[in-house]
Design a protein around this nucleic acid. Structure first.
Length: 139
RNA sequence: ACUGCGGGCUGUGCUAUCGUGGCUCCGGCCUUGCCGGGGCUAAGGAAAGUCCGGACAGCACAGAGCAGCGCACCACCUAACAGGUGGGUCCUGGUUGCGCUCAGGCAGCCGGGAACAGACAGUGCCACAGAAAAUAACCGCCCCGCCUGGCUGAGACAGGCAGGCGAGGUAAGGGUGAAAACGGGAGGUAAGAGCUCCCGGGGCUGGCCUGUGAGGGUUGGCUCGGGCAAACCUUGCGCGCUGAAAUGCCAAAUAGGCCCUGCUAUCCGUUCUCUGGGACGGUCAUGGGCUGCUCGUCCAUGGCUUGGAUUCGCCCGUUGAGUGCGGGUUGGAUGCCCGGCGGCAGGGUGGGUAGGCAGAUAGAUCCCGGCAGUGAUGCCGGGACCAGAUAAAUGAUAGCAGUCCGCCCCCGGCGGAUACAGAAUCCGGCUUAUAGGCCUGCAGUUGCU
RNA sequence: UGCCCGAUAGUAUAACGGUAGUACAGCAGAUUUUGGUUCUGCUUGUCCAGGUUCGAAUCCUGGUCGGGCAA
């Protein structure tokens, strides 16, 4: 079957309360230049059609112009769109949900290839993190 | 053609692959919403800064004054403006001509700039330097009176000099300073002074002509002590306050408010007592623990209040007495009823949170043409529909083309650059950022006709 | 999105429109066997641009940066 590299509105994390929950109690992991906060809610609570919901953020500290922040967020969205399928199949297999936010913490404008490589590493790391989470809960 | 100054306009395009938001149509499904497909559509000249002005919304509001804030030559444009257009005045650059090297330059042409009301309403400030920084004081100059000392002279109370004291007159001179008391010349005087005259420069005020007006021209009278109002302030004019996180509507779950309906399941014994009630034991009901289950055992809870009805007792009246009847009762009983408070269960409902919808995208709109006006702009006719997101879409990658720059083996090739910057309720301005390209006004230089 | 403040040496903080101070820090010297303490001297600044004014850190305008308030 052909994989469709889509990224719909429902795959984005939009609720203000959920994002505040991420910063308050989410687990963090860092793959420079990214930093992510994630939460694994129980699947019954969230009746979503997608196993993961994600938000992207670029702080205005080092990128003062809105065009620069828009450019970085678009690169991150594009990389996530192309790399998310391994994560989705993994989560569906485990019957898990994932909410997370990815923050760009670099100080210079990245290229698309850099963002894509780092995004692959980040997705590998978040799957390892979820593995550890399960081991904590089961015994 | 180049350079300089100024004004206006514009501000990349195409293809492929994979995607995103909105609207709409079709199909599918666990018809709520999601998924798939088709079509249309999707950032700017500044979207920016948030500096002005409005629209819109809520609140307030009889009128006036004060305070606060803003504006400040005139007329016009405009929904409005601190914006724009045209004009005036002043300052300034270039150039030509006149005058002519004292005051002092004047006129024409082409440009540029101005927070451009008031310093003769008042208050305040003007460091250092300087005599003095603002009612003209000081040094100095001059006149008069008195005193002292020399000199001339035969002598004097005569003449004249020097010094001191007193009473005046003056503003010529006084090296400074950013700024110095209208400027130059002549007269005049004891010395001087716009004190007077000539020329020139202001200020206040009146007449006439002209202009809608700011003003301009001309002719009189009075006058000649600086600057700062982006110091306080005065005058005139304008402004109610708050902002879409405004405002309005719908409204899950949970808790709580209100209303309706139904139910509300304990007695006995002993004992204490302040007569309200309490303690202990037994029994029953409900719930929970121990157990795989039952029995068993343990623990907890088991309403309150007032009124009515029936009945018993007691008292009063009626009667000679009883029955009966009427009344009272703070006495007792009731597995009888109704009500209130409380509890439990079910249903309804108002406010309102999460969340959602409206506000919110067709308008002081854009394009073309005509007319009026010097112009900003207005009117008329025709045509067009041009983002509507909300932790926030409008993208990514690759290639080609366009433009500019550099280099080379110069009909071509290679390399590099392609700006400033992203809607957030909507408009009109201003300011700031901006690779490059185009048009145009003026001045200068050079070349050609 | 809307509104309100501020910017002075490396740091903290003063200054009517008139020579930009003070303290700590830094550097050099003295004292001390050395270091510290103490003393003396020196260096270093008005966020940027334009305007008003004789003169601007101060007043006005525009920009840059920082902070705060309103869900």
């Amino acid at each position: 079957m052909l994989i469709r590299y889509t990224f719909k509105k429902a795959e984005r994390l939009k609720k203000r309360k959920l994002i505040e929950q991420l910063f308050a109690q989410g687990r963090s992991l860092s793959v420079f230049p990214f930093k992510a906060f994630c939460v694994f809610p129980s699947p019954s609570v969230q009746d979503s059609h997608y196993p993961a919901q994600v938000a992207f953020s670029v702080p205005g500290r080092y990128f003062r112009k809105a065009t620069q922040r828009n450019r970085i967020k678009r690169l991150m969205r594009e990389a996530y769109r192309l790399e998310k399928h391994r994560l989705y199949t993994y989560l569906l297999q485990k019957q898990m949900q994932l909410h997370w936010i990815i923050i760009y913490q670099g100080k210079e404008m990245p290229t698309f290839e850099e963002v894509r490589q780092k995004m692959q590493i980040l997705i590998n790391r978040v799957m390892q993190l979820e593995e550890g989470e399960n081991h904590v809960h089961t015994p």
